[in-house]
Computed example of a mutant assay.
Amino acid sequence: MNLDFKIKNLLLICLIFLGVFNQYYAQSDHHTEFKTGADQPELYLPLLKGKTIGVVTNQTGLMKDRSHVVDFLVKNGIKIQSIFAPEHGFRGDADAGEKVKNGVDVKTGIPIVSLYANNKKPNPEQLKGIDIVVFDIQDVGVRFYTYISTLSYLMEAGAENRVEVLVLDRPNPHDGYTDGPVLKKKWSSFVGLHEVPVVYGLTIGEYGNMVNGEKWLKNGVQAKYTVIPMKNYHKKQRYPISDKPSPNLPNDQSINLYPSLCFFEGTQVSVGRGTDLPFQIYGSPWTTGLPYQFTPKPNFGAKDPFLNGKLCYGENLSTYKTNLRELNLEWVINAYKNYKNPQTDFFLKNLWFDTLSGTDELRKQIIAGKSVSEIKASWKPGLEMFEKTRKKYVMYEN
């Protein structure tokens, strides 16, 4: 009986301890809960009440409960005059570079204005009557991914038309490190407006702050610009993203490999558009020495893929284990060395490779047979200079 009583007492003490521990754990867990800018409406709804707004967003503008930020704003009585859609459209189903059409969102009846093709910057007519434009897009933190250019043009238009820009910040899957050649001014384009490296290590909210602070907008204008920061975000942690940022970046692996593989878009080599593994494989009909085989065919993300219907030989990186914290140049160099086609050069004649690189040096270095370490050493001075600028705009700790 006495032993029974002791065991009961011991059990009771264990249960009390477990309860206290659980309560503490729940509190500490709550304390470190991560939230995007969109998931903190208490910070931005007061700024939007009674205002007429525009929203730049796409399929990634989701909240924790998977509802779209546009639907959430409408539900909370915020007056949205227009939805501005970037590359790939509002619902995110247009191919890369495909013309995104203006239209009306079926769900809300709000007019959609394309910010792609010939209208990359909202014009005064499109901004007329708007007080604030809310920007909420999942970016991937790479210079040639066009959403930072869309933000920059929006800020420029905002500054010129006295319209405020409010960014709901989201994670950058390539945050916490910088790499690649720094863009040279003469190579400036929609896939690289500013003198920054390929991987620049800032969230989209921080990037906008840098563009504003460094007066990189046309004529040095500055936008009225506010960032709703994320809560408990750390630059070196990898966060799951709300939805695929574009049709050909379907998963974390494609995003992981994207900064390194996108250079192939300036060559005669496919990166797997028109297959089930876009940005996870590469190959061409003229690299027959490589082991993996695939044939690009039209699909949801690529209506007319590069090398459509041609058997390609390359490499499958879909099971590549490394979480990349730097550019891997070995794949491009490997393909270059294996490329045998007397008819056409490895690099496209339109020099798209240089446009993506932001310089013609990388192409020349590959042709000259420079090693990866030699090429990377040549990037160092530019990266060190950029780091001084970048440091001023970092809002989150590593």
Rank of each mutant, 00 (worst) to 15 (best):
V133Y: 08
D139Q: 15
D139S: 15
G141K: 10
V142Y: 08
V142A: 10
T146V: 09
Y147R: 15
I148D: 01
S149R: 10
S149M: 04
T150P: 05
L151G: 12
S152C: 10
A157Y: 07
G158C: 15
A159G: 05
E160Q: 15
E160I: 08
E160T: 09
V163K: 06
L166D: 03
D169M: 06
P171F: 12
P171M: 09
P173A: 12
H174Q: 06
Y177K: 12
Y177E: 08
T178Q: 02
T178E: 04
D179T: 11
G180K: 06
G180S: 11
G180V: 09
K185R: 11
K186T: 12
K186E: 14
W187P: 07
W187V: 02
W187T: 01
S189R: 11
V191I: 11
G192M: 02
L193M: 14
L193H: 05
E195W: 12
E195T: 14
V196C: 12
P197G: 07
P197Q: 05
P197V: 10
V198I: 15
V199M: 12
G201H: 08
L202N: 09
L202G: 02
I204F: 13
I204H: 14
Y207A: 07
Y207D: 04
M210Q: 04
N212I: 02
E214R: 15
E214I: 15
E214D: 11
W216S: 04
W216V: 01
L217K: 08
K218G: 01
K218N: 10
G220L: 10
Q222I: 02
A223M: 12
K224N: 13
Y225P: 00
V227I: 09
P229V: 11
P229H: 10
Y233C: 08
Y233W: 15
K235R: 15
K236G: 12
Y239F: 15
P240M: 13
P240E: 10
P240C: 06
I241P: 00
S242H: 14
S242N: 07
K244N: 05
P245H: 09
P247N: 03
P247I: 06
L249M: 13
L249V: 04
P250A: 09
N251M: 14
D252P: 00
D252Y: 12
D252K: 13
S254Q: 05
S254E: 00
N256R: 11
L257A: 04
P259S: 05
P259H: 02
S260C: 00
C262M: 10
C262G: 06
F264P: 00
G266V: 01
T267R: 05
